[in-house]
Design a protein around this nucleic acid. Structure first.
Length: 878
RNA sequence: GGGCGGAUAGCUCAGCGGGAGAGCACGUCCCUUACAAGGACGGGGUCGCAGGUUCGACUCCUGCUCCGCCCACCA
């Protein structure tokens, strides 16, 4: 077979992917005879295309899926996309804005149609990107969170929670209100940010004409809604004022001074204005003191008609104008710069307004408690482990979850209000019955939709058919592992655990692997809005999906920290794919007309080199398997890179060229070449599915695809420390000779004459003489000792001295090289002697450490003695 | 304000109590019949700073300095 010289991913990847799909390798159907394994894709938002972060996340999932599939599990990789309520609504609104339209212009249905068009487009782009990446999802199962069955599951979940009393409508909380999106948000959808602002110190005169009190505020515009001033009960400065009245500036409203322990006497003046309508703490204090609630800022972020002549002003404009008015009234006693924190809408970055608004809340206390128990009991394990603590902190301090959104895009809340008496009934469809409260039969559905995360919390079981009792659900639930980004630990991961326990009475997954965040070279987060997003398709087109995958796995998957991505590293790993490909070409050529399956492996006489590479292969199988099992992706990748490139290609493959010249070693060498590469390809397949498949198909093989070949199980029988030690010696001698050649400027074609003083290793090196001579391009003579009748240059490799006779000028030059090495050995010797000369060390260090140190002393001394022969100026001639 | 992670070779990162590592980049030589997307041989680091524990610290402890992230109702 003729194989092209340079591996070209663009020629093979898409065709191989089609073949895999056509053969149904990605399908996972319940099969009681096989053990299941499942991973749920963190559903991408249909807001846009995928970036490198998604590529990493999905690659890691695919690595796991392919690994477990090869290990014989019935592996399901569930794909899908998220309608992403507010996020998608916003991007479509932005599209409309470009045409000068608002969603109100289209009406609710018209707008939804517009969003569906967007969803079609980006849903397809996302799936195409994932397929190009090579992930082995079961595409027949792909799900969108607004698909009819999924929609039904969401409604079912809501109705069940409602009937259980876990969902309730309340206006007893301050919610996060986004004036631009005109919807409430959950606490998790608010991002906090530092901002330079001011602190105004404003005088509130006493109602009785006394001087009153000075308060500090960052939000003068809310003064218009003040209903009290509060001080700390223990604060002697203000004790006399408690119970008296002060006058709210500009509106001239007399309000009481109340005492409340939640006031911090250290901050500002120790007196705080109370605005229950616009501040969460003030709301609490107001409630406890029976204070009225005034609202001056409307849902649109403008001052309402309660704001007097500030009405209609945008809230930040109003802040300036109110401050000016206070100034003019002579009531501002001081203004200072102040660094504060504001909450912003996660989606549109608008400053959040804490507001009173009637919303649906979910009481998650009990669910959170069960989730925390499951984590503490180890039924859900986190990798790295520290994330369990982060999750527990949140679960242990859980607060009510605001689940209603005043949006048009999402799952409608399945609650119906009686048009007559406003009595609510939860039901998936229009209630057929009469209103239980008033007997009327006119129902109107709640206009709100649910928080997107309410629906995605059902993902691990709603995808498998819940609420129906399906075979899929019984077989694949709970899933094996969740692989995701830390950014959605609370939003999604914790809530899936809560809902899994609530609806399935079982955790949704046993393991959670938190993958690193991919950043650009400047350390900025990958993000489309920052312009730092890198399109995975661009890297794939240039270097191939395998190169991107291997690069991400090898370089961006150390679970301990975030990593910086540079497309250049994909170019680096492209070279590795090429290396694997060319090694395969060599082996294929070597095997031509020869069938490894006709060989009885037991009959082969293995040489040291064969035993060495086989031993290394077994260790590699063991290390790589353990790494995949422990989610140490980078370790698996690096181990394979080293084995294939440095051990197999650089050494065994080169040795095989020598070994194959011996007719008696041919079968063994061919067999070992084939076997080693074939097994290594299987180990590498989960990370680099394409090149391994192409290479595997080119090699003699049994079965249809490496994708469905059995995972190699480590066999420690062939592990052979003696062979490893022997080959290390051979390699050391070869390296030393090459180094001498380089220093001697020996022309590449020329064989160098080398003398070996091999001592006790003479027999071994004699045996490998041909290897050494070929690999080092040398002619080797074994001698008893370095008699140095002539000038020489040389080096020391463990117990072996390697030297070459040469003319005096060369020798003097090269003695310098040995001298430098000798100096270092001397320094080392000093260190070892100093340590052994320390009585404390001898007394306190463990015996084996002391013994090791003594052995090292002997070793270093021997090396020093040998080396010193080559480090001195050459003796005078004659 | 609390918590977490990071600081090691020019770059990206491993190592985490007893001899400083990898890949890339760099230098020299080589188009040797798998691969120049390659091979061989090299150069390069007071392991952020300051203390402490220890026979011994890049590795453990404390403090500090920078960088990043998360949580929190001091207006």
């Amino acid at each position: 077979m003729e194989l092209v010289k340079a591996y070209d991913p663009s020629q093979v990847e898409e065709a191989l992917y089609r073949t895999w799909m056509e053969r149904g390798y990605f399908r996972a159907l319940p099969d009681r005879r096989r053990a299941p394994w499942a991973v749920m894709m963190p559903l991408p938002n249909v807001t846009g295309e995928l970036h490198i972060g998604h590529a990493l996340n999905n690659t890691l999932q695919d690595v796991q899926t392919r690994f477990w599939r090869m290990r014989g599990r019935n592996a399901l990789y569930q794909p899908g996309t998220d309608h992403a309520g507010i996020a998608t609504q916003n991007v479509v609104e932005r599209e409309l804005a470009r045409q000068g339209l608002r969603r109100e212009d289209l009406g609710r249905e018209g707008f939804e149609q517009q969003v569906w068009r967007w969803v079609e487009k980006y849903g397809q782009i996302i799936y195409a990107q994932l397929q190009r990446l090579g992930v082995s999802c079961d595409w027949d199962r792909k799900i969108f969170t607004l698909d009819p069955d999924y929609y039904d599951a969401v409604q079912e979940a809501f109705v069940r929670l409602y009937r259980k009393g876990r969902l309730y409508r309340s206006r007893d909380y301050m919610v996060n209100w986004c004036p631009r999106c005109a919807t409430a948000l959950s606490d998790l959808e608010v991002v906090h940010e530092e901002l330079d602002s001011f602190l105004w110190y404003v005088r509130y005169p006493g109602a009785d004409g006394s001087e009153g009190v000075v308060i500090a505020t960052q939000r003068p515009e809310t003064i218009l809604a003040d209903v009290a001033v509060a001080v700390h009960p223990e604060d002697s400065r203000y004790r006399h004022l408690v119970g008296r009245q002060v006058v709210v500036p500009l509106v001239d409203r007399p309000v009481p001074v109340v005492a409340d322990p939640r006031v911090d006497p250290e901050f500002g003046t120790g007196a705080v204005k109370i605005t229950p309508g616009h501040d969460p703490l003030d709301y609490e204090i107001g409630k406890d003191h029976g204070l009225p609630i005034l609202v001056v800022i409307g849902e649109d972020g403008r001052m309402n008609d309660q704001a007097g002549h500030f009405a209609g002003l945008e809230r930040f404009e109003a802040r300036e104008r109110v401050a000016q008015a206070l100034q003019q009234a002579g009531l501002v006693v001081h203004r200072e710069p102040y660094r504060t924190r504001v909450g912003r809408c996660d989606r549109c970055h608008t400053v959040i307004e804490p507001a009173l608004s009637e919303q649906w809340f979910c009481d998650v206390r009990e669910m959170a408690q069960r989730a925390a128990e499951a984590i503490r009991a180890g039924r859900v394990r986190f990798f790295p482990e520290r994330w369990a603590g982060v999750a527990l902190d949140w679960l242990d301090n859980i607060r009510p979850w605001c689940v209603s959104r005043q949006l048009w895009w999402g799952h409608r809340i399945p609650v119906w209000w009686c048009e007559v008496c406003h009595h609510p009934v939860a039901s998936k469809a229009v209630p057929q019955e009469a209103c239980p409260a008033c007997g009327a039969r006119a129902w109107r559905q709640d206009p709100d939709v649910l928080d997107t995360w309410f629906s995605s919390a059902l993902w691990p079981f709603a995808t498998l058919g819940w609420p129906r009792d399906t075979e899929d659900l019984r077989y694949f639930y709970p899933t094996s592992v969740l692989i995701t980004d830390r950014g959605i630990l609370f939003l999604w991961v914790c809530r899936m655990i809560m809902f899994g326990l609530e609806f399935m009475d079982e955790v949704p997954f046993h393991h959670v692997y938190i993958n690193p965040t991919v950043m650009d070279l400047q350390g900025r987060r990958m993000s489309k809005s920052l312009g730092t997003g890198v399109d995975p398709l661009q890297a794939i087109r240039r270097y191939g999906a395998d190169a991107l995958r291997f690069g991400l796995v090898a370089r961006c998957s150390q679970a301990q920290q975030d990593l910086r991505f540079d497309e250049k590293m994909v170019a680096d790993t492209r070279n590795f794919a090429n290396k694997v490909w060319n090694a395969t070409r060599y082996v294929v050529r070597t095997l031509e007309g020869w069938d490894p399956y006709a060989v009885d492996p037991a009959s082969l006489q293995l040489r040291t080199a064969d035993r060495w590479i086989t031993s290394r292969l077994q260790r590699t199988i063991q290390a790589v398997t353990a790494a995949y099992e422990a989610y140490e992706f980078d370790r698996a990748a690096k181990t394979l890179y080293h084995f294939l490139w440095s051990e197999f290609c650089d050494w065994y493959l080169e040795m095989s060229k020598v070994l194959l010249q011996d007719p008696q070693a041919q079968d063994t060498t061919r067999y070992t070449l084939w076997r080693t590469l074939e097994v290594a390809l299987r180990l590498l397949h989960p990370i680099m599915p394409f090149v391994t498949e192409a290479a595997w198909q080119a090699l003699p093989h049994r079965g249809d695809s490496v994708m469905v070949a059995a995972w190699p199980e480590a066999d420690l029988g062939p592990v052979d420390p003696a062979a490893e030690e022997e080959m290390e010696l051979v390699q050391g001698v070869v390296r030393e000779i090459r180094s001498l050649r380089a220093d001697l400027r020996t022309p590449p074609q020329e064989r160098v004459e080398v003398h070996l003083v091999a001592g006790g290793t003479g027999a071994i090196l004699q045996m490998h003489r041909l290897l050494v001579e070929a690999l080092a391009r040398a002619r080797v003579r074994f001698v008893e000792e370095c008699l140095r009748p002539h000038p020489v240059a040389g080096g020391v490799v463990g117990p072996v001295e390697v030297w070459v006779p040469l003319d005096r000028a060369q020798a003097d030059r090269l003695a310098q090289r040995a001298r430098e090495e000798l100096e270092e050995v001397e320094r080392e010797l000093q260190r070892v002697r100093a340590r052994l000369g320390n009585p404390d060390f001898l007394r306190r260090a463990p015996a084996e450490v002391v013994e090791a140190e003594r052995a090292r002393l002997r070793e270093v001394e021997a090396r020093r003695d040998k080396l010193s022969r080559y480090a001195v100026p050459q003796p005078p001639r004659g």
